[in-house]
Amino acid sequence: MTADTDLLKLINPALVEAAASGPRLLGGACRACGARSFPRAAVCTDCLSIDVETLALPSEGRLYSYSVVHQAPKGWDVPYVLGYVDLPDGLRVLAHIAAPPAAIAIDQQVRLALGVVGTDAAGAPLSTYTFVPA
């Protein structure tokens, strides 16, 4: 996994890291009040502290809703599935759902993965965190 992900060009490397046990979403935890954030907040939206540490988030969640997207700006591999995943700590994450639409259902458990979702201006593959049925 580590060797493979080194080759991936991530859309936003600040949002996900590749660990030996698999990818992990990176959020934030305010050291002053404990509030969680995703993406990691530069300033805590609960108490305005700027002492927010990076925190690896749970890798499983529940799919709140989704849509199969057929029309999108240039660069995305259409069709793709977008969904909102609710993590056990209350955070909600917008993510590509890397599964055939027929295998996707509201409220199903999903787990974190990495996947190619499009190409950059030069035609190179672009990757990001995704969720797949657990």
């Binding site: 859309i11 936003n12 949002l15 993406p39 709140y64 809703s65 989704y66 849509s67 997207v69 029309q71 999108a72 700006p73 995305w76 793709y80 977008l82 969904g83 909102y84 917008l94 993510a95 590509h96 509201i106 979702v117 499009g118 990001t128």
Partner: peptide
């Protein structure tokens, strides 16, 4: 095509388009 959204927004940067936002509301 879809309305051009602000690419500095992290959800837009992950593939959000307005019709998808409303479609997810519809699905739920």
């Amino acid at each position: 095509g879809t309305l051009p959204l602000e690419r500095e927004d992290w959800e837009v940067n992950q593939g959000m388009v307005m019709p998808a936002l409303y479609a997810m509301r519809a699905r739920r």
